[in-house]
Design a protein around this nucleic acid. Structure first.
Lengths: 221, 221
DNA sequence: GATAGTTTCATACACACGTTTGAAATGCAA
DNA sequence: TTGCATTTCAAACGTGTGTATGAAACTATC
C-alpha cells in the first residue's frame, strides 16, 4: 500500500469520526480502526495527534477562505474596484453557511467536521484560528473601499456581527430548530444568507446617529 | 472543618482554575491542590468531576437568567404588559454582556468562567444549555406581545441574531481587539449593548419586504 | 536480485486521569 | 464518656491515552 493511501485513509477516517462524535470522544485507536491502518501510522505520517487535527482543519479552512476571496474578488471586479457592501457580506458569510448548512450539511463529512470544530474549539484548532486575522483584514479593506464614509470602528463591528450571526446560527442550529419547533427552516441556506447579509448591511448602513451612539433608555435593574 | 467549607473551597478553586486555564488543562488534582483539600473530597461532595462542573455552571447560569427575567419583568410592568421591543432585547443580552465584558471582566472569576464555558463547551455544560430553551421561550412570548404584527419565524430569527452578536462578541473579544488594533473598545459595555440591541431591533423591525425575502443578487461563484 | 530507503506492524512504555477504598479523624447527640 | 454518623485522608486501582521502539515487510533503483 502506497504511503499516500494510508495518509488519506487516516485523514478521511479522522474527519468522519470527529464529525460524528466530536474531538473529545475519538481516540487515535478509534481512528486507526476506522481507517484499517496500524496505530503507529498516525505518528509516522503526521507526527502527533494534534498535527493531524491541525492538518484537517487547515485544509478545510483554506478551502473556505479561498471561496470567500474568490467571491469578493468577483464582486470587486464587477464594480470596478468597489464592491457593493451587500456583496462583500455575502462573500464573507456565504461560503461558510453554504458549507455547513443546507442539503449537503448532513451528507458532507467536511461540513459536519467544521461545525464540530466551531463548537468544541480544541487547542490546535484555536491556534490556527488566531492566525485568521489577516484574512479578515482583506474584507475590512474591501468594506472601506465600498463605504469610504464610515469610520473603521463601524466596519469592525459590522464584520464582527456578520460573523457572529453566521457562526452562531451554525453552532446552534439544533437549538434554533428546537426553539422554533421547526418553524425556522435551517435547510433554506440562501434564505439564511439573505437574512444575515440584510441585517449586516443594516448594522452598517442603518441610522448614522443610532450607529454611533444610542442614548437609549437605561434598562431597569 | 465543616463540610460546607470544603465544598465551597472546592467550588471556588475549581472556578478560578477553569476560568484561568480552561477545562481541558485543569485536573482534579490541580483543583484539590488549589483548594487545599484531599483528592477524594471532590467525589465525596459532588459525586464526580462532571457534576462539579455542572454545579458551577448551573449556579452562574441561573443567576444570569434571573437577572434577565427581572429586567424583562420590569420592562413589561412599565409598559403595562407590553414592553418596548428594544427593552426586551436589552433584558436578553444586557446581563450576559455586563457580566462577561466590562470593568469586572478581568477581576471577576465568575465572568471569566462563563466566557470559558462559552468557548470550550464541555459535555456537562452542553447538556445544561440544551435545557435553556424554556427560558428563551419567555422572551419569544414577550416579543410576541410587543410586536403582535410579526410572524413567529421573524421573532425566532431576531432572537437568534441577538444572542449571536452577544455571545460571539464575548467569545471573540480578543480577536476583535486584535483585528481592530484596539479601536473597538471592549470595555465600553453599555455602548456594546446599545449596538447589539440596535441591530437586533433593526433585524426585526427593519424593512418588511427585506426581512421576508431579499431577492438580492446571487453572488458570483 | 542485491541493496538502501520507506512504510507497516505488534507490542510495550510511561504516565495522567477520575474514581474507589478502607481506615483514621472529627463532630455531635445522648 | 459512649456510640454513631459524617468527613477527611493517604494510598492505590484500573483504565485509556498518546507516543516510542525495533523488527519485519515492502518498494524502487541500480
Amino acid at each position: 500500500m502506497s504511503s499516500d493511501q494510508t495518509r488519506s485513509a487516516i485523514l478521511a477516517a479522522a474527519e468522519r469520526l470527529y464529525a460524528d462524535r466530536g474531538f473529545g470522544d475519538v481516540t487515535l485507536r478509534d481512528i486507526v480502526a476506522e481507517a484499517k491502518v496500524n496505530l503507529a501510522a498516525v505518528n509516522y505520517h503526521f507526527g502527533s495527534k494534534d498535527e493531524l487535527i491541525a492538518e484537517l482543519f487547515v485544509t478545510r479552512s483554506l478551502a473556505t477562505n479561498r471561496e470567500r476571496l474568490n467571491e469578493l474578488k468577483a464582486a470587486e471586479e464587477e464594480g470596478g474596484g468597489r464592491a457593493r457592501i451587500e456583496q462583500i457580506f455575502r462573500a464573507l458569510v456565504g461560503p461558510t453557511l453554504r458549507g455547513c448548512l443546507g442539503p449537503d450539511s448532513e451528507g458532507s463529512t467536511a461540513a459536519r467536521f467544521m461545525i464540530r470544530a466551531s463548537i468544541e474549539s480544541v487547542p490546535p484548532i484555536r491556534r490556527i484560528k488566531n492566525r485568521e486575522v489577516d484574512h479578515l483584514r482583506r474584507f475590512i479593506a474591501a468594506m472601506r473601499r465600498s463605504m469610504p464614509g464610515r469610520g473603521d470602528v463601524e466596519l469592525y463591528w459590522a464584520l464582527n456581527f456578520a460573523l457572529a450571526m453566521s457562526h452562531h446560527t451554525i453552532r446552534e442550529k439544533e437549538r434554533l430548530t428546537k426553539l422554533s419547533e421547526g418553524q425556522c427552516d435551517l435547510n433554506d441556506v440562501e434564505g439564511i444568507i439573505d437574512r444575515v447579509v440584510s441585517v449586516s448591511v443594516m448594522a452598517l448602513a442603518g441610522d448614522e446617529t443610532k450607529a454611533k451612539k444610542t442614548p437609549g433608555k437605561v434598562a431597569a435593574r
